[in-house]
């Protein structure tokens, strides 16, 4: 089955740069899918988005949409204005000289129901009273909503969002990412979002493409990315993770350390642990894999992120991060705990 959007071996190198901004990147998109491109700054995620929009030209590779060739090699077959893609810019890029309704209607052809479409969209985001305002008279959240419906107005084949929530504060971004997701789902529009915020990516995506230094590290559903990261980079990018060599634990091979784990995986060399995989118990626990002393505590209200300096049975020292929730008392630095792995929670790597 041919996919909705195909990005085939795209390469882009900027003049004077040692490294390609994008090297041989390929991925596909299904119709109505919400895919997030995640990466640190310089990973090439924004460049990729701009290539898709036709705002940049690739050096090599192809971009196909529903079988239509959009870019091939160094030529943009279809210029940006003919692609019918929606683009939400990082800082919204609302036209300061145009009113809210003129901004929303910018991409609409002069037709009879233009007015109606604008009103309908403004109602969707609850801003129907704002139609005569100018962008600088709106709050950050309102600007973001207008930027979104402006991009949705011409019923784009593909919606692209470049760090849409990065200019908003935390509470607002949580509210807006939910709203944005619902709106896009309701309109049934295929979406690619670029973000460096892995929380946003995990929260809203159907699939995530992790980029690093211009290459794809991993593609997968949020749970896959979180629970079965392809490498240490991906694992640390999506949350705290402790990487342990099994030797450090000094476990005996014949006696599985961790209950509920396939014996085959016990043979693996590395053990990667998310903070919530671990439980801290009072010293003297039977199934403890390690014991250690608290070196740092981050108090989060509902939970505490605790760093333990551990010494394994073989005498090697290592660090573990564990989440402790449901306990009102914050442990003092130096408090000793035994560490237990929750059944079936660790990630094993060769």
């Amino acid at each position: 089955m041919s996919r909705f959007l195909q990005v085939n071996r795209i390469t882009r190198r900027f003049a004077g740069a040692d490294q390609a901004a994008l090297a041989d990147v390929s991925f596909d998109l299904n119709q109505r899918e919400f895919v997030t491109l995640v990466g640190a700054s310089g990973s090439g995620k924004t460049t990729l988005l701009r290539l898709l929009a036709g705002l940049e030209t690739p050096d090599a590779g192809e971009i196909n949409l529903e079988g239509e060739m959009l870019s091939r090699g160094k030529q943009v077959v279809v210029p940006p204005e003919q692609r019918n893609f929606g683009f939400v810019f990082q800082n919204h890029a609302l036209f300061p000289h145009l009113s809210v309704s003129a901004n929303v209607g910018f991409g609409l052809a002069k037709q009879e129901d233009k007015r109606q479409r604008i009103n309908e969209l403004l109602e969707l985001v609850g801003l129907e009273d704002m139609e005569n305002r100018f962008p600088h008279e709106l709050s950050g959240g309102e600007q973001q909503r207008i930027a979104l419906v402006r991009a949705l107005a011409p019923k784009p084949r593909l919606l692209m969002m470049d760090e849409p929530f990065s200019s908003l504060d935390k509470a607002l971004r949580h509210e807006l990412r939910g709203e944005t997701r619902r709106l896009i789902e309701q309109q049934g529009i295929t979406t690619i979002m670029v973000t460096h915020d892995t929380d946003d990516a995990l929260a809203v995506s159907d699939r995530i493409v992790v980029l690093k230094d211009g290459g794809v590290e991993q593609i997968g559903a949020p749970a896959d990315i979180y629970r079965t990261p392809a490498n240490r980079y991906v694992a640390s990018a999506f949350g705290a993770c402790s990487f342990l060599e099994r030797d450090a634990l000094g476990a005996r091979q014949e006696q599985p350390l961790i209950r509920g784990v396939e014996p085959s995986s016990v043979a693996q060399k590395e053990l990667w642990l998310r903070p919530e995989d671990l439980r801290l118990k009072a010293p003297g626990t039977d199934e403890a894999i390690a014991a250690g002393a608290v070196s740092e505590v981050f108090y989060h209200g509902s939970s505490q992120l605790i760093t333990l300096e551990c010494s394994g049975r073989s005498g090697k020292s290592f660090t573990l991060k564990a989440i402790r929730s449901g306990d009102k008392n914050v442990p003092e630095t130096g408090t000793r705990f035994d560490v237990v792995i929750r059944p079936g929670q660790a990630i094993f790597k060769m």
């Binding site: 705002l55 893609f85 929606g86 810019f89």
Partner: peptide, 18 residues
Amino acid sequence: QQADLIEAARTMGCSPMK
């Protein structure tokens, strides 16, 4: 002038002249 604004116009169907 912010290139973003011009590019926003391009993605919404404006030729460079427009």
